[in-house]
Design a binder for these strands. Structure first.
Length: 335
DNA sequence: CCGGTGCCAC
């Protein structure tokens, strides 16, 4: 663009900066910020939002905070994106209480009314098992005149399903239907997961068949049910479903393999588990940190230290980035 | 140009 004499504007830089940050190159993103300033362009709210978001994702709460202060200092006004980014950043780094306080503060000042931030808070309360708090937040949305959307309902349904409280999940589902919201695939997947975890795999399978007829299913639907079969000890069905995916045109992913590898390990089939890991490599999928943790923890309990180290070396050679905790706790002491 | 939900481990 520069060579062609087309001027790069803030939007050009914002796109590049977010792209680099998204790919994990925060340093390059920050370098581009400097570059644009040198060219007389001032980073706007969008750019600040993007960088703050990716700093939080990396776990750099301090870096994110100082950038926020810098933003305020330079009188670049935060918007509803900023608030939701802060809400999620605080939550995911363990500051759920602060996030709630922050959000109440923002609401009291009538700065913003935003479903996104509510959804984030509800999600984190659910994950911490505080379904009562999550439900209260839903109520306070109504009080503030905010309309819950599919994500709000889906988040609560998932929360209740994970808690094993199918009755409440159904209640939320029915309320959702009343306000004319049709469930989306994400919600169906949560329900399938809930059914599997309370040992109703067969009901879950019926739901999958129904979704199949509507052509409404994806790799997560299948993975969830494969996991459900594994939980119930139905390996034949699990592997059958794994094979069936190819026929219906849904590509297996790393999670599909990881699920089966885990349950092969749990039933003592360590060599088969390792073979399946090699199979995923042959299919062009490098093992990930979860494959690594699954195999290493199970091998360390049941196989020789040499085998564990050999396994570690092999996976690293194939491109895995070892899970730090697993490496420190298990592999490192063996070296 | 930036934010929210679902599958796999510990």
């Amino acid at each position: 663009m520069i060579k062609a004499g087309i001027e790069c504007n803030i939007r050009t830089y914002a796109t590049l900066i977010d792209g680099y940050a998204r790919r994990g190159s925060l340093e390059e993103a920050l370098r581009l910020c400097d570059e644009m300033v040198e060219r007389g362009l001032i980073p706007n709210t969008v750019i600040y939002n993007s960088i703050i978001h990716w700093l939080y994702t990396e776990g750099d709460v301090e870096g994110a905070s100082s950038l926020l202060l810098d933003m305020i200092d330079k009188r670049i006004s935060p918007d509803q994106f900023t608030y939701s980014i802060l809400t999620k950043g605080l939550c995911r780094n363990g500051f759920v209480k602060q996030a709630l306080e922050f959000y109440n503060d923002v609401l009291e000042k009538h700065l913003i009314e935003d479903t996104f931030s509510y959804n984030i808070l509800i999600n984190h309360l659910c994950r911490n098992g505080n379904l009562t708090g999550a439900k209260q937040l839903l109520c306070s949305m109504f009080v503030r005149g905010l309309i819950p959307d599919l994500v709000t309902y889906g988040t609560l349904i998932d929360g209740y399903c994970k808690e094993g409280n199918i009755e409440s999940a159904v209640q939320v589902y029915e309320n959702m239907i009343k306000v004319e919201e049709k469930p989306n695939l994400v919600i169906y997947n949560s329900i399938i997961n809930g059914l599997c975890k309370e040992a109703s795999v067969d009901v879950a399978k019926c739901l999958l068949d129904a979704l199949q007829r509507m052509k409404l299913r994806d790799v997560i639907t299948y993975n969830t049910l494969i996991n459900g079969y594994c939980i119930s000890g139905k390996f034949t069905e699990a592997f059958a479903l794994f094979s069936e995916m190819r026929n219906v045109g849904i590509l297996v992913n790393k999670a599909s393999y990881n699920t089966l590898i885990n349950f092969l390990c749990k039933t003592g089939c360590y060599q088969q588990a390792r073979e399946l890991m090699k199979m995923m490599i042959l299919r062009g999928m490098a093992p990930d940190a979860i494959t690594y943790t699954t195999l290493i923890t199970n091998f360390s309990k049941n196989c020789s230290p040499e085998e564990v180290i050999e396994l570690h070396d092999y996976m690293v050679l194939k491109g895995v980035i070892p899970d730090r905790q697993t490496y420190r706790a298990i592999v490192n002491p063996l070296l």
